[in-house]
């Protein structure tokens, strides 16, 4: 088989031109160019928010953003990483908070400086509608804010662009925490299951397993009924006495 020649493309890292193989992520391309990550890289999976990157393309006035670990380097990108952006984080005692919008207003009154410029939503690499989330918070809708901001990975790029100098990602995180801990309905079945554990309801089942001989355990294991891969939500095993709701009944 003939060797496949890799096409090289030019990219500009902090203004310096490099030739890198086409098809690499920005992160890999920077490593290829000789940069070694100490900060600005975490999960390499698009989840930790450490690798926020700003870039421009010649001839285009727009500012673009990317997660370096998720986005392919393209020819003529002028890029720089912004792994961290200072943002005022106000500590609070979660137990003291009431789960009302005023909790947020007191800690981050600057959110009322928002002028709806939308620079935050435009820069967000996760497509969080940041401006709208701030608008939901202003009108007291913590639940909507929490859901709409669910994808935020705290990269801080929105805050780097904010005309109101508001630390949106801290504000949105507080909204999610208030919603999750104080507003969302509690999962009743979870509480019941936890109580059953505490009350020792599962002990006989565990005792039975721990007192079995290794041979019997292996046999049980090998003969166990396996849920077929194609099983739908309605699937139940033939032996139903171990299902939580039956077992606890």
């Amino acid at each position: 088989m003939d060797a496949v020649e890799t096409k090289m493309i030019p990219i500009y890292i902090m203004g310096q031109r490099y030739e890198v193989p086409e098809g690499l992520t920005i992160m890999k391309a920077m490593e290829y160019a000789g940069y070694q990550y100490v900060r600005g890289c975490g999960c390499r999976g698009g989840i930790c928010g450490a690798c926020g990157t700003i870039y421009r393309i010649p001839g285009d006035y727009k500012i673009y953003s990317a997660l370096a670990c998720q986005t392919a380097a393209e020819p003529d990108m002028y890029l720089t990483q912004l792994p961290f952006f200072p943002a005022n984080h106000v500590s609070s005692d979660y137990a003291e908070l009431e789960g009302v919008p005023e909790d947020i207003y007191k800690l981050y009154p600057e959110l009322f400086r928002c002028v709806a410029c939308n620079a935050c939503s435009k820069i967000c690499p996760m497509d969080v509608p940041v401006m709208d989330v701030i608008a939901y918070i202003k009108r007291g809708d913590i639940e909507k804010a929490a859901f709409e901001a669910f994808d935020c990975i705290q990269c801080g790029l929105c805050t780097s662009r904010c005309f109101a100098e508001a630390p949106q990602f801290h504000i949105m995180q507080l909204a999610r925490r208030l919603y999750g801990g104080k507003l969302a309905p509690k999962a009743q079945h979870n509480a019941e299951a936890a109580k059953a554990v505490r009350d020792g309801k599962f002990n006989p089942m565990l005792d039975q397993l721990t007192s079995m001989s290794l041979e019997d355990l292996k046999k049980e294991y090998i003969e166990r009924e396996i849920e077929p891969e194609t099983a739908g939500d309605e699937w139940k095993p033939k032996e139903t006495k171990w299902l939580l709701e039956e077992y606890l009944r």
């Binding site: 009322f112 928002c114 002028v115 709806a116 410029c117 939308n118 401006m131 709208d132 701030i134 608008a135 202003k138 009108r139 005309f163």
Partner: peptide, 25 residues
């Protein structure tokens, strides 16, 4: 279906367009 705070108070400065973005949006 989508709206934002109008800005509450109309900005008096003729050239302060930044504060007209919210209502015009």
């Amino acid at each position: 279906p989508r709206w934002n705070c109008c800005g509450t108070v109309f900005s008096f400065a003729d050239d302060d367009l930044m504060h007209q973005i919210a209502p015009v949006r």
